[in-house]
Write a protein that binds this DNA or RNA. Structure first.
Lengths: 212, 212
DNA sequence: CGGCGATTTGAATTACATCAATCTAGGTGG
DNA sequence: CCACCTAGATTGATGTAATTCAAATCGCCG
């Protein structure tokens, strides 16, 4: 899981440790490297001129991000929690001398991000805040492989981050959490420890996310 | 513009013509090829079990789509207007024998889609329907290079498609068009011919979208 | 223990979705 | 060529869910 694209290991690389809140890169920076999350959580986000904050993706262990070929970053990347990353200089792409397997790994890393962004767009398709939040929690549960571990989910990010990810006001998110708890879909053991009620067995083992 | 990644031309390929409304591929299909739009418009979309339709991306001439490495398509692709596509079999990725330039082109095509999806997520960050619609129209104007051509924009897609792209009800979209026209931001010459009021010159020539 | 940011709660407002009906345009066939 | 038909688009009325502003509470860190 943490090494979804082992072909990348052949690239020049090194570990970097990012403290919570630190930016990995900023919007409009010139891309110099891409990264793989080893531990922690990094969010890709943009700031509108009107102060609005929108998180495009949460990158969890195993995810690759920052593989941008344009002249400037379209998003910023910020450590949501203290994180350890593997840094791959982008220069390898122009240097040449890469074997086919590695190049395929790069394409795979890029398309993985596509899948992630597509899922997000799909999640925002939900009109009701409750549906959006449940969708998010299901996603997180899948990523943390807690489908059958008693439903304990531990969001590594703040409520504000979740709100900015789901396109909701913080207050709305807070109220939605409360409403889901009343409905018995969820129990907030701690602000970062949630217990999901087991989902109905229908397509619990979805064939499409198996090899993801 | 239509040949943003000329390296791909070295791949095995052929032209296909898709009539309006025809699916290029469906959700959960096994990916066999990826495509470049030569003319027309293709939308990438998903259908929720509750009947909700969400368009993730409009692919216009020059855009590449369908470069999926997973075992199944995450989205469907449907011709919004009659379209001509170039079809590239995905087998080339496993066959090997690709030169570095072509592989880089593939990575570039994949990251282009990332940019497109990111822009969309950013657009959905707008809370007000008016802002979302203006963002969409600005995007379309950019893609049609009409910044300085008198502001004529010709959306190739229906109102329903725009609504499903922006996550709005069709009725809301219709009312929002009307409201923008009242405010003088827009004139609806014809349902598929809009005239945008020139934007304030502030960052009209944004350095970041120069080389797209 | 104190303080500041994060989160929650409350009240009022507003924008959007929904349901329903009307209107328009494009296409077909007589 | 025109009447008809249907899908797409608009308009209206109404309910509701989310935003906003404001204040209280919680919780972490020093």
């Amino acid at each position: 899981m943490t090494d979804r694209h082992p072909a990348l290991d052949e690239l020049r690389q090194w570990r970097v440790t990012i403290p919570k809140g630190r930016m990995v890169y900023d919007e409009s920076d010139t891309p110099k490297a891409f990264y793989r999350v080893e531990s922690g959580c990094v969010s890709l986000l943009v700031h509108s001129e009107d102060g609005h904050r929108q998180i495009l993706a949460f990158c969890l262990p195993g995810d690759t991000f920052g593989l941008d070929l344009a002249g400037a970053r379209a998003t910023a990347a910020e450590a949501t929690t203290a994180s350890v990353l593997t840094r791959f200089p982008l220069a390898v792409l122009t240097d040449g001398g890469l074997n086919a397997r590695t190049m395929t790994g790069l394409v795979a890393a890029a398309t993985d991000m596509n899948v992630s962004l597509s899922m997000h767009l799909r999640g925002l398709g939900h009109v009701l805040a409750e549906d959006r939040l449940m969708w998010f929690l299901d996603w997180l549960a899948d990523r943390q492989s807690v489908s059958r571990h008693g439903g304990l989910v531990q969001p590594p990010m703040s409520r504000r981050d979740i709100a900015d990810f789901l396109g909701l006001a913080q207050e709305t998110l807070s109220r939605t959490f409360a409403r889901l708890e009343v409905q018995g879909l969820l129990r907030v053991s701690d602000i970062r420890r949630l217990i999901l009620r087991p989902r109905r067995p229908t397509n619990s083992d979805n064939p499409f996310r198996q090899a993801a």
